[in-house]
Design a binder for these strands. Structure first.
Lengths: 337, 337
DNA sequence: CTTGGCACTCAGGACTTTCGAGTGCCAGAG
DNA sequence: CTCTGGCACTCGAAAGTCCTGAGTGCCAAG
């Protein structure tokens, strides 16, 4: 039961520290949270919590600050997800409602998320790998130049230009178009790529091979998988202190989309919101930042990931709620499109 | 002739201030630049320069710092564009050589530019307005859903989804495809839009009107005009001092692409590199930042603009040279594509 | 287990002092 | 008229000093 109070103390410390941005002492704590005990008692609890590594003091004679481990406990056990207010729900809905295409959805999501959380928002474009082929179109720009257009179920359109060694007649082109569509349409792109490769031997001619190659390349091209939208970088300005140590590496990471993808990728399990805190994970430079992310996609398939990056000292319950809410709305939106 | 020396002094002040980041005094000046006169003389010159508003002292008993007006004079009259080193030229060429499509060119340019200048680079995607229509493709996804694909001379591909009230047969579709291509192909998009509208009355049917509308919309849609790539934001971390006053508004501006476009837009005249210094222009928030930009495009048509944004205290000759060089290489690259 | 009391610690703010780079001005030399 | 050396003066930045108060740990008593 003292155990229980100790956790209450930890929760209070996290909450106060997040809102005041200053180390919190025993006296201030009992004043702001009706804990029903005296400062001295709280001090004893604090000593234990410090012993166990959940909090620490910046220096003797200062208040306590949560450690990464403390935040972790807080997130795992002391957090009740606070529901979004009706106003916020409406804001999310109307914000996304006007979206006209996939790019627009992603763009709006990233802005929405950064405004709701006042953090840097990151939204991964829906991944190709799980999406299916809706249609393949071949357009002869000149007799020897072919534009290959790949239209996917997510609404994404990939195009490739193919230079042919031999030219194709309109009839041949129509045949080819029919062939590739028959092989690929409706398939998940991985399967479609395999099916296309399998159908090549049936027909001869370099032209066809070139077209198939470019299609397969477009399907497996990871560049499109890696597309990411970032927004709300201006929120970094609120960091104020600890500038070089925190903001610089973060700015660099934001441009290195590969790193961002890895950060988000850790989170893609299940429908739950994942939180990476501080030093957790391989990037020491980002030791003072946390990532809150979750997967999203139509029919709850996690096609992609979205989330935010911010200082370890952040409002986890609120942020997690916002991330989850946005992911749900975007998923629902993708369901309809 | 003293006039001449005074300008030499101004140049020396600018150069020293840019490299040392500290107010420069008379003594340090004569030591670092063989001016052939004594500190006292330089002091007299400085007094005059200050009188005329080219330099200022942060406080009594400190060295001098160039004003915006001083930088302006420096850029306009005291700068000899220093040519890029062969190594740099090679770096630019190889950096751009691997580009596979338009997006890639823009992405590489923005990275290249930010690395060369160590500033925040901004590259506008080639504008639609001057480009011509290469091909229009109509793809029937279902009998009543049509994908309209617009392929432009710049390599950009715009697509729109059109819901038809009535369904079209394959023959009708082929006719329509022929019709719109005949009207639009090869035209500048503004003309193409007009031509399309003109050809509508000839044919009846809501379907056709819908297709034409979506094409015209795609052509005149400014969203595509406004596309911009930003890179090198991590260089903002070098600002160090004057953080809230300078970096925050800049970060905000970087997300507000509209503002960026206006900033770049001022610069789009002719083939020369344009420089906007500090307070010049309407944005007071960006009073301590400068913009160095120039137009680029195939055959020296300025289809779009690229440049950098940085502190007023920057190496203007070097930056201008880099911007010009990148613009040239990108232009040449677009010529070939 | 909790609480009030108490001595102790120490970062941060306010204040003072010192130091030196840089200035303006003047009188004299070219 | 221009340049130069000399000189007194100014004032911000850095370093040193002092002081305050929030916060602590410990202890003895309830």
């Amino acid at each position: 039961m003292q155990e229980e109070r100790r956790l209450a103390v930890l929760r209070a410390i996290v909450e106060d520290y997040v809102s005041t941005e200053e180390p919190v002492g025993s006296k201030a704590l009992v004043e702001r949270h009706r804990l029903g005990v005296s400062p001295a008692t709280v001090r004893n609890d604090m000593a234990v919590l410090e012993e166990e590594g959940f909090i620490t003091q910046p220096h003797t004679s200062a208040g306590r600050v949560p450690t990464d481990k403390g935040y972790r406990l807080f997130v795992d056990r002391l957090t009740t997800v606070k529901p979004m207010s009706p106003a916020e729900r409406r804001a999310i809905a109307t914000f996304l409602d006007g979206a006209v295409d996939l790019d627009d959805v992603v763009g709006r999501s990233v802005r929405l998320l950064s405004q709701l959380t006042r953090q840097v928002a990151v939204v991964q474009y829906p991944t190709l790998s799980r999406s299916t082929v809706r249609h393949v179109e071949l357009v002869a720009l000149t007799p020897s130049r072919l534009l290959v257009v790949l239209i996917l179920s997510t609404g994404r359109v990939e195009q490739r230009l193919v230079e042919l060694e031999t030219s194709l007649s309109d009839d041949e082109l129509a045949d080819l178009r029919l062939l590739v569509n028959r092989a690929a349409t409706g398939e998940i792109i991985a399967d479609a790529a395999a099916a296309l490769k399998g159908s090549v031997p049936d027909v001869d001619g370099h032209a066809i091979a070139a077209v198939v190659d470019s299609l397969v390349e477009a399907m497996s091209d990871h560049r499109s998988d890696e597309r990411i939208a970032v927004g709300g970088a201006a929120n970094l300005a609120r960091y104020g202190d600890s500038f070089d140590s925190a903001v610089r590496p973060l700015l660099e990471a934001l441009e290195e989309h590969v790193i961002l993808l890895k950060l988000l990728g850790e989170a893609s399990t299940g429908g739950a919101v994942t939180v990476r805190i501080g030093h957790e994970g391989p990037y020491q430079e980002l030791a003072s930042t946390s990532v809150v992310a979750t997967g999203y996609g139509p029919r709850d398939e996690a096609l992609a990931t979205l989330g935010i990056v911010g200082p370890t000292r952040m409002d986890y319950p609120g942020t997690m709620a916002a991330v989850r809410a946005v992911a749900r709305y975007v998923s629902r939106f993708l369901d309809e499109g």
